[in-house]
Amino acid sequence: MTDETGSAREQTVVGHHHDDLDTTTLAYSGQAPSHAVMAQRAHRFGTWYHAEAVLRSMRAFIVPGLLNAVGQPLLYIIAMGLGLGALVGNGVGTVDGVDYLTFVTPALLVSTVVMSVSGEMTYPVMAGFKWMRTYYGPAATGLRPAQIAAGHLLAVVIRFVVQCTIFWVIAVAFGATSLGWSVLMVPIGVLAATAFGAPLQAYAASLEGEGFQFSFVQRFIVMPMFLFSGTFFPLAVMPVYLQWIGWLSPVWHGTQLARLVSYGASGPGWLIAVHVLVLVAATLAGVMWARRVYTRRLTS
């Protein structure tokens, strides 16, 4: 152990002479609003502030993201709609009273965003708490943990508004749907995504470490949901003992709503209400669960 103190003092003095940094304005510029105002703004707009931060860090992936947002609908519409559709058209003719491309497009829109949300609300959530600890930055500001949770979800919602809009434009361009009410497929797609994404976000936040859980979700929840939610054929065609998957699946509820606005698929009014109710309820439950988990983890 040597006497460091003396040399430290010397260096401090040297440092003083060398830089002309104005520490006074750094501590107090007179230009900033009062801290009470800062607290008030964080209270009101904190969710948006965090959404902005999340969107900014997503920007690094904007090119692959856009390629994905454009490429996925193109591939699906060509493969399922035109390829498989030609086969179906030659065989049974129409499905649900329309040609196969028209039938399958709303389902493809909904299921692709629900599949995307499973990526957005798992690993990035784990990164926020564990790998990058990015949630702990805003947690040390005037934001509440609930705003951090909601801000992350909001950023994802904004991303999906763009993604669904792109899908819809492509669908219109391919004649898979017509201009008009079909634009409501955008909010329906986003709602279906949050109905799955918000609870998933809360679940991901409740995990201390990632073992097998996320790939389990991918294989045993997302994939069956994609295949057995009336996406490629009406739910009623499936054996009864598999139909419950559709009833539990945001993809089916979203898809049925999307079909309604896309080509006017008919159904009883109560069922439409059930679709909306399930999606809204699942979203709200997820948001509330996430709020609890984020609050617990960011204050303990």
């Binding site: 703004r41 931060a53 600890r133 990015t134 930055g137």
Partner: peptide, 30 residues
Amino acid sequence: AHLGVIPQQDNLDEELRVRENLIMYGRYFG
């Protein structure tokens, strides 16, 4: 909102650039 907190473990946003990190953090204070 009145505090400046420097945690023991850095939690910068690694996806953002250096200057952006400062600006984004300032946004949290409105």
